[in-house]
Structures are given as structure tokens and as C-alpha cells.
């Protein structure tokens, strides 16, 4: 197979991955009253409809709050655990790491069932608390993997210098380690937020009746009737989960180059 053929094949694969998503974005600006093909013109009517749709806005708020809380809790737990794993010679490190990433080794459906039944038995039925617990445990392994990879690259001697110059371990942590850790913290938090914001498999098991997150809202809109607002909602979600990280990366980059001068 020649290189040209491989290139063509790869382009076709990329097209396969992105064309359907591009069509979602395209159709969300469609003026056609059914929101489907053919395109009859550009309009923002579906975004307007979205803005006035109470159920959707409620789902957005739920998803945002849930995602932010998940990010805070998961990142805190993840940073502490990663520090211990990278910085200390913990006995049984392999076993501990396996245990900590176990939530992504178990199929999410099984995790969802186990958590629902157990917490329900403890008296915590389907509720926001259950949702939060589920999202935290599901995002924790990703945070730990991301943060650990970052931590390994932070040089120890900077901290040792601070310690040898008389800083206490706590002072060293807050004035040396934490600033160096910031990219890892941001990365972990962003990761946790995005995964939580996108999750549907576990969420459908855990959410109480009447509460929807954005993905479950899309899901129920799909099942009830294919409403043209779905494409607009999809576009907004893509903007949030792809655009925000890109924007964040751009900001971080411009800040760090300014600081570097």
C-alpha cells in the first residue's frame, strides 16, 4: 500500500469521525422549521428556543453544579493520593494504584448498579448526593492518572532547596509545590469536570426522577420526539467541552509567556 493511499484512508477515517459532528453544528443554524435537511438558510432560532426552554436551562444548571463539585472533590482526593504515590516509597504501591484506578476497570454499568444498591441500602436513595458520589468515584482514576503524570516531571530539588533554606514542609507545599502543581491541578479539575459533564451511563441510574443533566436531557428529548433544538444543544455542549479547554490552554499559554519575560 503506497503512502498516498494511506493518506487517503486516514483522511477518510478523520472524515468519518468528524462529519457527523459537523452536521450537528451545521443543522443547529438551520432556518428550516423541522431543523433537518435541506438547509433553507441560517438562523439562530434554535438557540433562542433553547434559551427559553426551562427544562434545558435547568439541566444546564444541574450539570454545571454537579461538574464543578465533582471537579473540586475529585481533584482534591486525586492530588493528595498522587502526591503520596509519587513522592513516597509506599509499600504495596502497585496494589494501591490498581485499587485507585479500579473504577475505570469495572464496566460503568456494573459500578452504577453496585453504587445505587449499596447507597440505597444505607438510606441514600436516588439523589443529588448519589449522583455526586458516583461522579467523584468515576472521575477519580482519570484525575490520579493525569496528575501523577504531571507530578513525576516536577523536580524534587526545588522543594529540597526550600526545605534546606529553612521553610517548613507546609510552607514549602504552599509556596513551592502548589504553584508548580497548578498545571496538574487545572488539568485534573478540567478532566473531572468534562467527564462529569458528559457522563450519561451512570447518571441515568443515579439521577432522581425529575432531575436531568444535559446528556440525560438530550437523551430524553431523543426518546420522546426528535426536536430540532437537540442540534443546538449539541453545539452548545461541544463549545463548552471543546472550546473551554482550548480557551483555557490559550490563556495559560499567554500568561506563562508573559511571566517568562
Amino acid at each position: 500500500m503506497g503512502w498516498g493511499l494511506i493518506r487517503l484512508y486516514a483522511i477518510a477515517v478523520y472524515a468519518f469521525m468528524f462529519l457527523p459532528v459537523a452536521v450537528v453544528v451545521l443543522l443547529s443554524f438551520n432556518a428550516n422549521q423541522f431543523g433537518s435537511f435541506p438547509m433553507t438558510g441560517l438562523s439562530l432560532r434554535w438557540f433562542e428556543a433553547l434559551w427559553n426552554n426551562d427544562a434545558v436551562m435547568r439541566a444546564f444548571r444541574t450539570s454545571l453544579v454537579l461538574g464543578l463539585m465533582t471537579a473540586v472533590i475529585s481533584t482534591t482526593l486525586g492530588i493528595l493520593a498522587s502526591l503520596a504515590l509519587v513522592r513516597y516509597d509506599v509499600p504495596g504501591k502497585n496494589l494501591i494504584t490498581t485499587a485507585l484506578i479500579a473504577p475505570i476497570l469495572v464496566p460503568e454499568v456494573v459500578l452504577a448498579v453496585a453504587l445505587l444498591l449499596f447507597l440505597n441500602w444505607l438510606g441514600i436513595g436516588k439523589s443529588f448526593a448519589l449522583l455526586l458520589a458516583g461522579h467523584v468515584i468515576f472521575t477519580l482514576p482519570f484525575v490520579i492518572l493525569v496528575v501523577q503524570a504531571r507530578l513525576v516531571s516536577i523536580r524534587r530539588d526545588v522543594e529540597e532547596a526550600a526545605l534546606s533554606l529553612g521553610a517548613s514542609p507546609v510552607q514549602t507545599f504552599f509556596s513551592v509545590t502548589l504553584p508548580l502543581l497548578t498545571p496538574a491541578v487545572a488539568a485534573g479539575a478540567l478532566f473531572a469536570f468534562t467527564i462529569s459533564f458528559d457522563d450519561i451511563t451512570g447518571t441515568l441510574f443515579w439521577k432522581p426522577g425529575g432531575v436531568e443533566t444535559v446528556p440525560t436531557q438530550i437523551f430524553s428529548m431523543l426518546r420522546n420526539s426528535i426536536s430540532p433544538e437537540i442540534n443546538a444543544l449539541g453545539t452548545v455542549m461541544i463549545l463548552l467541552t471543546v472550546g473551554l479547554p482550548l480557551l483555557g490552554a490559550g490563556l495559560a499559554r499567554s500568561l506563562s509567556t508573559k511571566r517568562g519575560r
Binding site: 469521525m17 468528524f18 457527523p20 459532528v21 452536521v23 450537528v24 443543522l27 433537518s36 435537511f37 468534562t194 459533564f197 458528559d198 450519561i200 446528556p215 438530550i218 437523551f219 431523543l222 426528535i226 437537540i230 442540534n231 449539541g234 455542549m237 461541544i238 467541552t241 471543546v242 479547554p245
Partner: peptide, 15 residues
């Protein structure tokens, strides 16, 4: 694609 929601990528095939 890892950053684009699973439900959106799935439903995009309806279009």
C-alpha cells in the same frame, strides 16, 4: 472526539 460528548456523537448519526 474524547472531548465531545458520547450522547452527541451517538445522536449525530440520526442526522
Amino acid at each position: 472526539p474524547f472531548w465531545i460528548s458520547y450522547i452527541i456523537r451517538t445522536m449525530s448519526w440520526i442526522n
